[in-house]
Measured scan of single mutants.
Amino acid sequence: MIIKINGKYYKIKKIEKNPNGKYTITTENGKKYEFKNVKIFSEEELK
């Protein structure tokens, strides 16, 4: 799965839903981001 952050695309390693309704997304390079609204892309959609 792929996520778009600030115009760049990252591969997703893990998605966790937090009790506060936000999502914590861990990218393949180990960085964590927290979002309220998340749009996930499949690799097929990006081709």
Rank of each mutant, 00 (worst) to 15 (best):
K17A: 07
E16G: 03
I40G: 07
T26A: 01
K13E: 08
I5F: 05
E34G: 03
K47C: 15
I2A: 09
N37M: 07
N6K: 12
E34L: 08
I2S: 09
M1N: 06
N6M: 10
G30T: 00
K13W: 10
T24F: 07
K17H: 08
F35C: 15
E28M: 14
T27S: 03
G7Q: 06
L46Y: 06
I25K: 00
K22D: 09
E16A: 05
T24K: 04
P19M: 11
L46T: 09
K4F: 13
I15Y: 03
E28D: 09
K47F: 03
T27F: 15
E44W: 02
F41I: 12
I3T: 03
S42F: 15
K8D: 04
T24D: 04
I40D: 05
E16C: 11
F35D: 01
K47M: 10
Y23G: 00
S42W: 14
T26D: 01
I25P: 00
I12T: 02
Y10R: 04
T24C: 07
K31T: 11
T24R: 05
K32L: 08
Y33V: 05
I5G: 01
Y33W: 11
Y33M: 05
I2P: 01
G21E: 02
T24E: 08
I15S: 01
T26F: 10
N37S: 13
K32Q: 13
G7V: 01
T24N: 04
K8L: 11
T27N: 01
I12K: 00
K4Y: 15
N18M: 14
G7E: 04
K4R: 13
I5Y: 06
L46K: 09
N20M: 05
I12V: 14
L46S: 07
K8T: 10
I12E: 00
K36I: 11
E34V: 14
Y10W: 08
K22W: 15
N29V: 03
K4W: 14
K39W: 10
Y33R: 02
Y9E: 05
K39M: 13
K47H: 12
K14R: 10
E44N: 08
F41T: 08
Y10I: 09
I12H: 00
K13C: 13
K39E: 15
G30F: 01
E44G: 10
G7H: 05
P19S: 12
K36M: 11
N29S: 13
Y23N: 01
K17G: 03
E43N: 04
N18S: 11
K4H: 08
L46M: 11
Y9H: 04
Y9R: 04
V38M: 10
N18R: 07
I3P: 00
I25D: 00
K8W: 07
T26Y: 11
Y33E: 00
K8S: 08
I2T: 08
I5W: 07
Y9M: 08
P19Q: 11
V38H: 05
T24P: 00
I3H: 01
M1V: 08
I25N: 00
E34F: 11
I12P: 01
E16H: 05
T24V: 14
G21C: 03
S42K: 07
S42E: 08
F41Y: 13
I3R: 01
M1W: 15
K39N: 09
E28P: 05
N6A: 13
K8Y: 09
P19C: 11
I5R: 02
N29Q: 09
F35I: 15
I2G: 03
T26Q: 03
N18F: 06
E44V: 06
Y10Q: 06
E43V: 03
E43I: 04
S42H: 10
N29G: 14
E16P: 00
E45Q: 11
F35P: 01
I5K: 02
G7Y: 02
N29L: 06
Y23F: 14
E44M: 07
I15A: 03
E28W: 14
T27M: 15
K11Y: 08
K39F: 12
K13D: 06
K39C: 15
K13V: 15
T24Q: 07
N6D: 10
G21A: 02
F41W: 12
K11E: 03
G30M: 02
F41K: 05
P19G: 11
P19T: 14
K4I: 15
I25M: 02
L46V: 13
N18H: 12
K13H: 10
Y10F: 11
I25H: 00
I5A: 07
N18V: 03
K36R: 12
V38N: 04
F41Q: 05
K22I: 15
I15H: 00
K8G: 04
T26V: 10
E44A: 08
I5E: 01
I12C: 04
Y10K: 03
E34D: 05
Y33G: 01
I25G: 00
L46H: 08
K47L: 11
I5C: 08
T27Y: 04
V38P: 15
I2F: 15
I15W: 06
E28F: 13
E16Q: 09
I15F: 07
N37D: 13
Y9I: 07
N37K: 12
Y10S: 02
I2V: 12
P19Y: 07
N18K: 12
N6Y: 11
N6Q: 10
K39D: 11
E34T: 15
I15L: 09
G30L: 02
N20A: 06
N29E: 14
K22C: 15
F41G: 04
I5P: 00
G7F: 03
N29A: 08
L46N: 09
E16I: 09
I12G: 00
E34W: 10
M1R: 07
I15D: 00
K17V: 11
G21W: 01
K39H: 12
I15E: 00
I3E: 00
K36V: 14
E34S: 11
K31E: 13
N37I: 11
Y33L: 05
I2W: 15
M1H: 08
E44C: 13
K32T: 14
L46C: 15
N20C: 06
G30I: 00
Y9C: 12
E16M: 06
I12F: 02
T27G: 04
N20D: 11
Y9G: 02
K36Y: 13
K8V: 12
K4L: 14
E28R: 07
G21S: 02
T26H: 07
N18G: 14
E45W: 05
E16T: 10
Y9S: 05
K8Q: 11
Y10H: 08
N37Q: 10
N6V: 03
K47A: 13
I40M: 09
T27L: 15
K32N: 05
I40T: 06
I25C: 02
I2L: 15
E45N: 09
K47E: 12
K22P: 03
E16S: 08
S42A: 09
P19K: 11
M1C: 12
N6G: 14
K36H: 10
K4E: 13
Y10L: 11
T26W: 15
